[in-house]
C-alpha cells in the first residue's frame, strides 16, 4: 500500500503517521504538500492531526481550500480511501466530504487522554480487522471535538457511524462522552464507506510502547482491504 500523508502548514501529526506507516507497518508512505495538485499514485490518503492554519477562523476551514484538496475530493469520489484524523477529520467535515461539523468541547478545555471506543461497523475498509462491538482504547487530543449535525442528518448517518465514545464495557452515556459529541460519535464514514474521519488518534495507539495497539488495526484494515481490491 502506498499512502500519502498530507502536510498543511500547522499539521503536527504528519511525522507520527508516516512513522507508523513506514516504520511500524513497513508500508510505502510519502508526504504530500498542501500545494501539490497530484497524489503521486497513492492508494490511500491520510489527512493528519494538528492545527492547520493555526485553526484560525474555524478548524479545517482554511486547509480545505488548499490545492491538494481538489485532488483528494476527486480521489474520494472515485472510491479512493481517505482517512482524516483529528484536524484531518475537521478538514473532511469542512470540505463536505463527510456530513456535519465540529464545535468546541462542552468542557471548554483541551483534553488529552486515552478514551474507550466502541466499534460500530466492521464492514468498512478502515474497520474490517475489528470485531463487532469491540471496545478499544485510543487517545484523544483536541479542544474542538464535539461532533454535531442537524437532526435530520443524524438520523441519516446512523449506518455511517464507525466509532462511539463508551465506557469500559461498551456502554454509551454522558459520563463517557469526553467532548459532548452528538450521540457520542467519535468517527464516521461517508455513505460509500471509503472516507473515514475520527477525532481519536490511531497513530498514537499503534505500538505497545505507547500503551495501546488498537489504533494499528485501522491502518491494517486499510492494507487488507487494498490487498483484496
Amino acid at each position: 500500500m502506498k499512502v500519502g500523508v498530507v502536510i498543511f502548514p500547522g499539521s503536527n501529526c504528519d511525522a507520527d503517521c508516516l512513522y507508523v506507516l513506514k516504520d511500524v507497518l513497513g508500508q510505502d508512505a510519502v508526504s504530500l504538500w498542501h500545494q501539490d495538485t497530484a497524489l503521486r499514485g497513492c492508494d490511500a490518503i491520510v489527512l493528519p492531526g494538528g492545527f492547520s492554519y493555526g485553526d484560525y477562523l474555524r478548524t479545517g476551514a482554511v486547509a480545505r481550500l488548499s490545492p491538494i484538496m481538489g485532488a483528494v475530493r476527486r480521489f474520494a469520489s472515485g472510491g479512493g480511501l481517505v482517512l482524516g484524523i483529528c484536524n484531518g477529520f475537521q478538514i473532511l467535515l469542512e470540505s463536505g466530504l463527510l456530513p456535519g461539523a465540529i464545535l468546541r468541547n462542552t468542557g471548554l478545555r483541551f483534553i488529552c487522554r486515552f478514551v474507550t471506543l466502541r466499534v460500530e461497523r466492521t464492514d468498512t475498509p478502515f474497520t474490517n480487522r475489528f470485531k463487532p462491538g469491540q471496545v478499544i482504547r485510543m487517545p484523544i487530543a483536541h479542544n474542538e471535538g464535539r461532533y454535531t449535525a442537524e437532526a435530520k442528518t443524524i438520523r441519516q448517518i446512523q449506518p455511517q457511524v464507525a466509532f462511539r465514545y463508551c465506557g469500559p464495557d461498551g456502554q454509551v452515556g454522558d459520563a463517557f462522552n469526553p467532548n459532548g459529541s452528538v450521540e457520542a460519535i467519535a468517527g464516521l464514514t461517508n455513505a460509500a464507506g471509503n472516507v473515514l474521519g475520527l477525532m481519536p488518534h490511531p497513530e498514537r495507539s499503534s505500538e505497545a510502547a505507547l500503551g495501546s495497539e488498537d489504533g494499528r488495526l485501522i491502518f491494517e484494515s486499510m492494507i487488507e482491504s487494498l490487498a483484496h481490491a
Binding site: 477562523l57 474555524r58 476551514a61 482554511v62 481550500l65 467535515l93 469542512e94 456535519g100 461539523a101 464545535l103 454535531t148 449535525a149 442537524e150
Partner: peptide
C-alpha cells in the same frame, strides 16, 4: 464560502 460554516 469561507467565513461561516452553514452547518453550525
Amino acid at each position: 464560502k469561507l467565513l461561516a460554516n452553514p452547518v453550525i
